[in-house]
Design a protein around this nucleic acid. Sequence first.
DNA 1: AAACGAGGTTCCT
DNA 2: AGGAACCTCGTTT
Length: 183
Amino acid sequence: MSPGEWKAGGEGLTISYGFFPSPFGYALVMATDRGLAGLAFGDPGEEKAMLADMTRRWPKAAYVDDKARTAPLAARVFDSRLWRPDRPLRIVMIGTDFEVRVWETLLGIPMGKCSTYSDIANKLGKPKAARAVGAAVGKNPMSFVVPCHRVLGRSGDITGYHWGLTRKRAMLGWEAGQVVGTA
DNA sequence: AAACGAGGTTCCT
DNA sequence: AGGAACCTCGTTT
């Protein structure tokens, strides 16, 4: 990954988006000229809700329906064979200081491994901020790319997920399969 | 097993 | 400013 950053709110930013099928349902891919900015999931027919859910995060940004531009990113994200250091996926993290820090921590979780909310809070030097971490993870705009699904509760339980626990389990399962298949 | 309060940060009124 | 919400945690009923 080669994370870029942008101030929260997304002011002055133009975001292209498109809908694509994915292993976990319908996916909404959002991108800026600097790389992938957002990734959301849902079911066909929910496009409007998915889009609203994302635009709420960056109310100041401009949005353009541009399938041609987002298609290559969509293809790349769901093919683990293309995840290699020499061809990093360019992403842009738009959020507050704290959120960006949390997301960067998530990127450090290796494939197939899991972490916990309190664990991340510790890494940020705020051992008691587990709940804040949960809130920040929940606002993660790049579900799946930023491995928010690899974060579990303290006891190893799957706790909650913005786009549904079922989808979270599906991602973990798919990932486990990728590890075996690409080893 | 369920209920409860503390905790950090963000969002809305 | 004040209060509620959040993909939580640890402790207490």
